[in-house]
Lab assay of single mutants.
Amino acid sequence: MQRVNMIMAESPGLITICLLGYLLSAECTVFLDHENANKILNRPKRYNSGKLEEFVQGNLERECMEEKCSFEEAREVFENTERTTEFWKQYVDGDQCESNPCLNGGSCKDDINSYECWCPFGFEGKNCELDVTCNIKNGRCEQFCKNSADNKVVCSCTEGYRLAENQKSCEPAVPFPCGRVSVSQTSKLTRAETVFPDVDYVNSTEAETILDNITQSTQSFNDFTRVVGGEDAKPGQFPWQVVLNGKVDAFCGGSIVNEKWIVTAAHCVETGVKITVVAGEHNIEETEHTEQKRNVIRIIPHHNYNAAINKYNHDIALLELDEPLVLNSYVTPICIADKEYTNIFLKFGSGYVSGWGRVFHKGRSALVLQYLRVPLVDRATCLRSTKFTIYNNMFCAGFHEGGRDSCQGDSGGPHVTEVEGTSFLTGIISWGEECAMKGKYGIYTKVSRYVNWIKEKTKLT
């Protein structure tokens, strides 16, 4: 034993070699072989497995989906700052455009905790909710729209109204504003409101030439003092309507412009014939205590009207009353817009006519005020429907199939267009061939041609 100890002390290297040989010859039971080890760690190889990531292109799944990435790591994937920024906006807080917040056709661009709407022409605001041009839906104005110097929408209202708090709607500024039905039992019968379409306001006024200088022999019209197929109006439903009495009662109609003036057809009036105007009328054979009678003290036909040349060209006249009318729910003026808007309103496509005229061709006159909704007829169809001249200051309205029309005794009465609950004068009943005849239409004086003249002559002093 002493000898062994001496050998170990003198030859430590020998001992180490012996131990190493023993270990190498022993069977290893701690580690699995290569094949079995792979069965336990069965993990798919990654895209760049075996390579240094710093030297390969980034992978979106590896960089940002398996674990949260930084902007720089995302930049490695896209290799483009702009594309990385677009991805980053949604990656950080989701897609803010998912709810489609942009209105009126706006395009949404996502941002971090926010979004941006790219608005089409005519709109602005956070969600493109603000109209900035009158060309689109009248700028959301209830009545009139004008573009300011910086191309912003400025709404306005006709006389007797003021802008509401929203700067879009119009509200009454006087007790009985024009064009409004205020009798409670008839307010439910107000005709369907007309909503502004998209309009090209630059070209809204037709490029028409008034044929002022045409000389033409007097034409022989049949029954051209021209509501057939209409309905009984309720008291106060058309408070701007008046009836004219002269040699015979209810020979023509008219509309209240203001307390002192009536507008009617020029062919209705004769110099030297006494005319009485009755406002607030409903049943011409009954006294309903809503009527107001006034005498006409002055007749002003349009300066281009000449019955000797043509009885229905420039067929418009103004009547001055001896005493002002007292405005109330049964006696209310009709609204008159400017030339541009009167023309736009007419193009809405349908209007209402009213009167006490004959209820059928050569038949009896109506006792109760009649009204009828009539569609506008395109000019080409209008011209083809008659052998008589249709001037540019006239328009056609009615039904091709016949059966409904204005008729004798309705002449001078109103053709009105309702705009968001307020009625505007767009025409004056003038003439036609018979009444409600198939293929024939009622012919009306186009008020847009005469609004400046009306307003100039009827100013209240």
Score class of each variant (00 low, 15 high):
G363E: 06
L425G: 00
V243N: 04
W88T: 09
C157D: 00
E456H: 04
H282L: 09
V228I: 11
G409K: 14
W118S: 13
L32R: 07
E323P: 04
E340Y: 15
V77H: 14
H267A: 04
A380R: 04
I17K: 01
Y91H: 14
W240R: 01
A207Y: 09
E73T: 10
G355Y: 15
I334D: 00
G50V: 06
E61H: 12
V195R: 05
G50R: 07
G421Y: 04
T84W: 04
W453H: 00
I297C: 04
P175Q: 07
Y330R: 14
E124G: 15
V419G: 01
G402S: 11
C178Q: 01
T458V: 04
K455G: 05
T381G: 07
K455Q: 12
L425D: 01
K137F: 06
G179L: 01
D111S: 11
A436G: 10
V195Y: 05
Q57T: 05
E79R: 08
K39N: 07
A307Y: 07
V269T: 05
G229R: 09
S406M: 13
S365M: 08
E285P: 09
N313R: 11
D198F: 07
G439D: 09
C170E: 01
C134E: 02
T276R: 11
E171I: 11
F31A: 13
G21P: 03
W453L: 01
G421F: 03
G421L: 03
V359C: 05
C117F: 01
Y91M: 14
E193D: 10
C128Q: 03
D410M: 15
G179C: 00
N304R: 12
F424A: 01
I262R: 00
E159P: 04
E142R: 03
Y161A: 01
K89F: 05
A192S: 11
G355F: 13
Q219C: 14
E285N: 09
T458C: 11
E259P: 05
C178I: 00
R449G: 15
F238T: 05
S220M: 06
E259K: 11
I334L: 08
R298L: 02
C134H: 02
I256H: 00
F224C: 06
F196M: 04
Q57R: 10
N393G: 10
E433W: 05
E171M: 09
E418R: 07
G229H: 04
K188T: 04
G246V: 05
Q370W: 03
V242F: 00
G357Y: 15
S169L: 03
Y47S: 12
S156N: 05
V353P: 02
N328C: 03
T158H: 05
R43Y: 02
L130G: 09
K234S: 11
K347P: 01
V326D: 13
T225N: 12
G21M: 10
K260R: 10
I300M: 10
V359Y: 09
F176N: 09
C108K: 03
F55N: 11
V374F: 02
E270S: 03
Q408K: 07
G229Q: 09
A266I: 01
N127R: 06
K459N: 13
K387Q: 15
E420G: 12
K347W: 05
S448N: 05
L23N: 00
L325E: 01
H314P: 02
Y352N: 13
V451H: 08
N104Y: 11
P120K: 04
L244E: 00
F123L: 13
N213R: 06
F55M: 14
S430D: 02
I262C: 02
W431C: 15
H282D: 04
P375C: 06
G230S: 09
G357H: 13
A250H: 08
D200M: 03
S107E: 08
E79T: 13
Y330K: 07
H400S: 13
Q370L: 02
E165A: 05
T342A: 10
D322G: 08
V359P: 03
V227Q: 09
G94W: 05
P333W: 00
K293L: 09
M8L: 10
N80L: 03
V77S: 13
E285S: 13
F31Q: 15
E61R: 11
T215N: 09
N36A: 11
